[in-house]
Simulated scan of single mutants.
Amino acid sequence: MRYALGVEYDGSEFHGWQRLTAHGESGGPATLQATLEEALSGVAAHPVETICAGRTDAGVHAECQVVHFDSDASRTPRAWVLGTTSRLPPSMRIRWCAPVDDDFSARFSARARRYRYRLLNHQVRPALGRQWLAWERRPLDVDAMHRAAQQLLGERDFEAFRTVHCQAAHARRELQRLDVTRDGDIVSFTVQANAFLHHQVRNMVGSLLEVGAGERPEAWIVDVLEGRDRTLAGPTAPAQGLVFVGPRYPRDWPLPDEVRFDV
């Protein structure tokens, strides 16, 4: 039987999503995948391997990461949720479990991924909620950042915004949404694309901050994009401000509404 899980986590204490040791091998840095698989294996009473919708880096959080796994164990969705969560650290929990057909893939069935990046725009760094917020002391022009961001929308080559360690075969992605808004001292970036490159969101945010701080004109972001050179873009924004909101799937999959398209 194949199951899909919605997983919520605080990534502060983990070395990213991807398991860094062979499956079932103990030791090594703590990763989210290894921690989840150990808990699932305890409930299933056999080794369990998972596939996720989108791997997150060290320090990045998730509201609803989606994974799938296969098991012959006779367990109800409720048992998977409660049993697995009871074996996880407080920084992780299972939101839901849904049986799915064998051709469902948490990664390849997804049609979009959503991220949110938040920072405190203030002269003094945050004390409360600092694991969830990045910090920028320079005054920021949010309207200028939003206008610059709209120039990145569409299917484009985002070579300039991916890390040199990115393993994707090509850099073409469809950026569907990139909104920049302010609520008091909190500046938020809401991003959606069909898929993302390694560090793409944090590199776009870092570049837009250069525009917001008045270091670069709004049109510069297009020059960076068309230059296809990572060294032309701004610095990579810190990880702690980034949350993987979750993937989106076609509505014909029997999944909760929070991970399905509206239409």
Score class of each variant (00 low, 15 high):
3 Y>P: 06
4 A>H: 06
13 E>Y: 01
15 H>A: 15
15 H>N: 10
18 Q>N: 06
19 R>Q: 11
20 L>E: 12
29 P>H: 09
30 A>L: 15
32 L>A: 07
34 A>H: 13
38 E>I: 10
40 L>G: 06
40 L>T: 13
41 S>P: 13
44 A>T: 11
49 E>D: 13
53 A>Q: 00
54 G>Y: 05
58 A>Y: 01
60 V>F: 03
64 C>F: 03
67 V>W: 11
80 W>S: 00
99 P>N: 10
112 A>Q: 02
113 R>L: 04
118 R>A: 10
120 L>A: 05
122 H>F: 14
123 Q>F: 15
123 Q>V: 14
125 R>K: 08
126 P>W: 06
126 P>C: 09
128 L>K: 08
137 R>K: 11
139 P>C: 05
141 D>A: 00
142 V>L: 15
143 D>P: 08
145 M>A: 02
146 H>E: 03
146 H>N: 11
150 Q>A: 08
150 Q>W: 08
159 E>R: 03
165 H>P: 08
165 H>N: 15
165 H>A: 14
166 C>A: 07
166 C>H: 09
166 C>T: 05
168 A>F: 08
180 V>C: 01
182 R>D: 02
186 I>D: 03
190 T>V: 04
193 A>G: 12
197 L>T: 10
203 N>I: 00
209 L>W: 01
214 G>F: 04
214 G>Y: 07
215 E>S: 12
216 R>Q: 09
221 I>T: 14
223 D>K: 08
225 L>N: 08
226 E>D: 14
227 G>K: 12
229 D>E: 13
237 A>R: 00
239 A>L: 05
246 G>R: 02
248 R>S: 01
250 P>C: 04
256 P>W: 09
257 D>S: 15
259 V>K: 05
262 D>T: 02
